[in-house]
């Protein structure tokens, strides 16, 4: 009886001993390393399902599995900003819409270009990607009403002040200078005035645009006679096949497809009723506010996130 108790206590003590030993070896390691411990870079990353991570890794050319395994995984954009802001040796990435000052982080310019809405829109800030859309071909809809509704929705999302504001609120970077009031646009689509609750607009394609598109659809619904919608976002690669290509008449057929990248040469969108860009999505590398760094190049970012560069000052 007593034996089991003492065994249990020994197990606990052994466990704590192991923990202490681990702590000791690490101090030794950093002391013998020669450099001061405070300058070892701590890399923060989002979990791999994050669209921001995808955009960031694409921009710096970091392939699958190349990320250093010394990285710490954070759960959200806000979590990223908070954690990097508390860590003088931290580096991470966040969307451009993050409140940098409130989180005590500093956004870095990329290849010498500061991240602002202007530099993103004129294309000089390179850590960005477009959100594109493509629709089915003219006349290839279940009904004329549906085709009109799809046209109206695209107009709402890409041209109206109201729609662009929704896109902006959900992280998209848009050019508002040519926006017009929705009431003006709506006049072109008489179908909006009837009850459309029996019609379902089906969307698909990139998962990264899901937040923006679902917010737009939600805002659009009451303006369009309560039209129904169904979202099946699976990946940018499905946007074209399911609207215009091989799957357009199958079970996965959709009315509007989205891609979080430019359509490539294999994806012919010329036959679409409409295709174009909704907005741009930009990612910013962030460091703690007192970090001396102000700019980062693609190469340096790659070296840090792949683990070959582990110190901010050593070259």
């Amino acid at each position: 009886m007593k034996k089991i108790l003492s065994l249990f206590i020994v197990a606990i003590l052994a466990l704590s001993l192991v923990a202490c030993q681990g702590a000791q070896t690490s101090t030794e390691g950093t002391e013998t390393g020669g450099t001061t411990t405070s300058s070892t870079i701590n890399v923060y990353t989002r979990d791999s399902s994050s669209g921001t991570r995808e955009a960031f890794e694409d921009a710096i050319g970091l392939g699958e599995g190349e990320l250093t395994s010394a990285a710490s995984e954070v759960s959200s954009n806000g979590d990223m900003a908070t954690r990097v802001g508390q860590d003088v040796n931290g580096i991470g990435y966040a969307s451009l819409t993050t409140d940098f000052e409130a989180n005590n982080v500093k956004p870095l310019s990329f290849e010498g270009v500061e991240p602002t809405s202007e530099t993103v829109l004129d294309g000089s800030y390179k850590m960005q990607r477009p959100f594109n859309y493509v629709t089915r071909a003219d006349g290839d809809y279940e009904s004329d009403d549906k085709q009109q509704l799809v046209e109206a929705f695209i107009a709402y999302m890409t041209q109206s002040q109201e729609g662009l504001t929704v896109v902006q609120e959900n992280g998209g970077i848009v050019d508002m200078t040519n926006a017009v009031a929705w009431s003006e646009l709506a006049a072109n689509y008489p179908v909006l005035n009837q009850d459309n609750s029996g019609i379902t607009i089906r969307t698909g394609g990139s998962t990264s645009v899901e937040k923006v598109v679902s917010a737009c659809l939600q805002a659009f619904q009451p303006l369009a006679g309560n039209v129904d919608y169904a979202m099946a976002q699976t990946g940018s690669g499905d946007a074209v096949p399911r609207t215009l290509g091989s799957e357009k008449d199958g079970a996965n057929a959709i009315d509007i497809g989205f891609a979080s990248r430019a359509f490539n040469d294999d994806e012919d969108v010329t036959g679409a009723l409409e295709s174009g860009e909704i907005c741009k999505d930009a990612v910013v590398v962030i460091v703690e506010a007192n970090n001396a760094m102000t700019d980062i190049t693609k190469q340096v970012a790659y070296d840090i996130f792949s683990g070959t560069k582990t110190s901010f000052d050593a070259e």
Partner: peptide, 25 residues
């Protein structure tokens, strides 16, 4: 902190538990 490998014995190093693994993302 959700470390990608382990186990973690160093008290000052980041770690990963079963629950945090399930929850993140």
């Amino acid at each position: 902190g959700n470390k990608l490998f382990g186990p973690t014995f160093d008290l000052f190093d980041i770690t990963r538990t079963l629950t945090s693994t399930m929850l993140t993302g």
